[in-house]
Design a binder for these strands. Structure first.
Length: 446
RNA sequence: GUGGCUGUAGCUCAGUUGGUUAGAGCACCAGAUUGUGGUUCUGGGGGUCGCGGGUUCGAAUCCCGUCAGCCACCCCA
């Protein structure tokens, strides 16, 4: 016997979990489309040179790579942004700009696993390319906002910053040459005490006073106007840094005008993001109830990503929803339904002699738009009801010999165990309508 | 990739200083009840004690390795 097992970081998805996942995907799809983003897809496997050197040294190490049967060096995509850059460079001609797309697909990273962190997981990206308009930046934040609201996640915070601010501050402090190391240290605020971060920066060659100023800036909290004012002071006359400050100011102003509630979007000067390709605004999204889960939706502006594949200037901005991480979080919060069925109606296989009637009834209910499972075997009624309840059906439809004789049907609410008798006298339309309205009532009652 | 903790039935866990046929609750199946599920009663199936090796008369228990999970580093969705 071969032991049934899965690779580390690769998982099976049982119905309850897969259904929850599909619900998230449905919501994401709806929100993306509501802003005009169009779906695309790309291959899971790419030529290795398309993927390497685009994210960071780290993502190169995490890349699943191998030689295919034709001796080609290939790799599995580790995110959806890099393949999109290739896609955009290859197809701009027919797409035209600006171009907005969403892409929901599986990606692979050969890194160590942890809670909410797997080797195979799904991302739901949306990006706008071909424009540097601040509107595109605003929409990126608005989509993330609408998405989390639509998912019913009450408490979350979108933290925004701009790479240019960080660069400007570093230049003003004379630390531009140490940017990567210092930003990495800065990212540890919240994990390490401020003194610890300063010490680490000094280790990277920064003067203590400069490091302390950097850390105090990143630790700023409060209203966005306040934080931006303090940041602006640190940026000084650096022109690029000022652009960043203005970009964030405009961003916050725009989303506020669009109706985003106070506190949902905050300016956080410590958000740096690891991926090297970001050039403008950056954002991360945290569940207030599970801050240690990490960001469930991150992104930013990258103004020269496609430059690796084409001479044409293709600026872009977008974000990525990590639905597997989000799902892990929702599960932990007990917010994932235990239902194992997507259908609402369980049709009891009562009397094998009436098989034809059952099939006809099931077909009529489905034609009306309801999901119906007709149990394949005429097992004992108790057993069928037990299974139906366990799987999470809303109602069981019981029609046995007695009911057929009387022209009635019994509709049982599986949650409350209450049964209602429906009189239909062989009029299929009447039966369907009655069940339909009962279901509506049950749904709205929840 | 590095370090720490953990690994007994599908799930949650017992298992005395290593001692003979490894237990419980829940879940599952069958019956009490050939037309009504989440209560009750009775019975039943199911465990290479993660895997491999070592120490020992004897290992679930001690040692080493390995795999997996969690946590931290790193990075990130």
């Amino acid at each position: 016997m071969i032991e049934p097992r899965t690779l580390k970081g690769f998982r099976d998805h049982l119905p309850a979990q897969a259904l929850a996942r599909e619900r998230l995907l449905d919501v994401a799809r709806r929100v993306y489309r509501s802003y005009g983003f169009a779906p695309i897809d790309t291959p899971a496997l790419e030529y290795l040179d398309v993927l390497t050197g685009k994210g960071s040294a780290e993502t190169d190490k995490q890349l699943y790579r191998f030689e295919d049967h034709g001796g080609r060096q290939v790799g599995l995509r580790f995110d959806l942004t890099v393949p999109f850059a290739r896609f955009a460079a290859q197809h701009v001609g027919v797409l035209g700009t600006p171009f907005k797309r969403y892409h929901m697909a599986t990606v692979w990273r050969g890194e160590n696993t942890q809670r909410g962190r797997y080797r195979e997981f799904m991302q739901c990206d949306f990006d706008t390319i071909g424009t540097t308009s601040a509107v595109a930046d605003m929409e990126t934040v608005l989509v993330v906002h609408d998405l989390l609201v639509a998912l019913g996640i009450g408490r979350f915070t979108i933290r925004v910053n701009d790479r240019r601010i960080l660069g400007g501050v570093l230049r003003t402090l004379g630390l531009a040459d140490r940017a990567t190391d210092l930003l990495r240290s800065l990212d540890k605020l919240g994990k390490l005490p401020p003194e610890g971060v300063v010490a680490e920066m000094v280790g990277h060659g920064a003067p203590e006073e400069a490091a302390a100023r950097l850390v105090s800036m990143a630790g700023l909290s409060g209203g966005s106007a306040e934080v931006l004012g303090a940041v602006a002071a640190l940026v000084g006359d650096d022109p690029v840094g000022r652009e960043g400050v203005e970009a964030v100011r405009a961003l916050v102003d725009g989303v506020t005008r669009a109706g985003v509630a106070d506190g949902r979007v905050v300016v956080d000067p410590s958000i740096a993001r690891g991926l090297d390709y970001y050039t403008g605004i950056v954002l991360e999204t945290f569940l207030d109830e599970l801050p240690t889960l990490g960001s469930v939706c991150s992104g930013g502006r990258y103004d020269d990503l496609a430059g690796l594949y084409t001479k044409q200037k293709l600026p872009g901005v977008g974000a990525s929803l990590g639905i597997d991480r989000l799902l892990a979080g929702l599960e932990e919060l007990g917010r994932v339904s235990a239902a194992e069925t997507a259908a609402e109606v369980f049709l009891v296989h009562f009397d094998a002699a009436h098989l034809g009637d059952y099939l006809r009834i099931a077909a009529a209910l489905r034609a009306d738009g309801m999901g119906v499972e007709f149990f394949p075997e005429p097992r004992k009624l108790g057993q069928q009801l037990k299974l139906a309840g366990k799987r999470g059906f809303r109602v069981a439809l019981v029609i046995g010999g007695d009911e057929f004789a009387r022209g009635t049907a019994q509709l049982k609410n599986l949650a409350t165990e209450q049964a209602t008798t429906i009189a239909w006298n062989g009029d299929l339309r009447a039966l369907v309508d009655a069940i339909h309205s009962h279901l509506e009532a049950i749904r709205s009652g929840h």
